[in-house]
């Protein structure tokens, strides 16, 4: 509970900044709305108002500020509005037995989660195998590592449509597959780097010791390198799963997908429903937080069982 206070302080600060920002973000739209409703404004027309800063608009029309906090289509919704939207599209729908309706974020979150987990599994496997190859073969180290680094400098938004085109060309109709590939593409790298570091973490004396036992390379891997890499692996997995989620959401953006959190964000943008975007964003953040927390828990349990937690 000692940790609760700083965490809550930061949370309150973020909410406060967010809340304060709502008025200047929405004032123009709110004034346009008020003008249509026949309110007397200063300046009176939208054209004139374009020349005036939001601060001046707020000063000149203080009566309209309150309206910025209760708009139907705000540029920046209040935290409360987002919470209500989130509630309406998740828990309330679940309570009404419509959890898997197409309008439910639970449904879209589930679609995204599936691709994320597939991509995470694929990326982690590739990352670990790549790391083993790099640690045990100098040739692979020299040839694979530069490509691994280059792969991460290519913007994933540029690459994602290509992966989708290629996979549909190959006759893969399931949308989960290309999304999982994009997700794996982002996720394998932290795992690879972390595992290389972990597998190389044993001190020279440790390897010498195994040599005095005339241990085989495989025994050295199994008994020393692999267990030594476990703490590094978990740290990488936590970064990796977050990257996998980002990859999936990016994979859902440019693809004309109609389901998944990424698709919700895109559709919200196209139909001018910022509340839907924000709700999907928060849902994605909650999902990422939950996944990382789960891995953190797995890390604690594993390390405790291995006797490494003092």
């Amino acid at each position: 509970m000692r940790n609760a206070l700083p965490i809550l302080t930061v949370l309150v600060a973020i909410l406060a900044i967010w809340y304060v920002a709502v008025a200047p973000m929405n004032i123009r739209v709110a004034l346009d709305q008020a003008q249509r409703d026949g309110a007397a404004l200063q300046p009176a027309t939208a054209l004139e108002r374009q020349e005036v800063s939001v601060w001046a608009l707020m000063l000149n029309n203080p009566a309209q500020i309150v309206g910025t906090y209760a708009m139907e289509r705000p540029r920046l919704p209040t935290p409360g509005q987002v919470a209500v939207e989130l509630w309406n599209t998740t828990a309330e729908m679940a309570l009404n037995g419509r959890a898997m309706s197409k309008r439910s974020l639970l449904y879209h979150g589930w679609i995204t989660l599936q691709s994320t987990l597939w991509g995470f599994a694929l990326g982690t496997t590739l990352g670990i195998l790549g790391a083993v190859a790099i640690v045990y073969s100098r040739v692979v180290d020299m040839s694979l590592m530069p490509w691994a680094i280059i792969s991460q400098t290519v913007p994933i938004v540029a690459l994602a449509p290509m992966i989708i085109v290629v996979s549909s060309q190959l006759g893969i109709t399931d949308r989960t597959v290309p999304k999982a590939i994009i997700s794996a593409y982002l996720c394998y790298f932290p795992v690879l780097v972390g595992m290389v570091k972990g597998l190389r973490s044993p001190a020279h004396a440790q390897l010498d010791l195994l040599q005095t036992y005339n241990a085989s390379g495989f025994q050295a891997f199994l008994k020393l390198r692999l267990p030594a890499s476990v703490p590094y692996l978990f740290t990488s997995l936590k970064v990796g799963i977050a990257a996998a989620l980002v990859g999936t959401i990016v994979g859902e953006l440019p693809t004309g997908a109609i389901s998944g959190l990424g698709a919700r964000i895109l559709i919200g943008d196209q139909f001018g429903t910022p509340l839907a975007i924000w709700a999907a964003l928060v849902a994605a953040a909650v999902l990422a937080g939950a996944l990382v927390t789960l891995l953190d828990l797995a890390q604690r349990i594993t390390l405790k069982r291995m006797g490494m937690q003092a």
Partner: peptide
């Protein structure tokens, strides 16, 4: 062989 550091595996 006994090294300067005990080098026991923490796990």
């Amino acid at each position: 062989y006994v090294f300067q550091a005990a080098g026991l595996y923490p796990w």
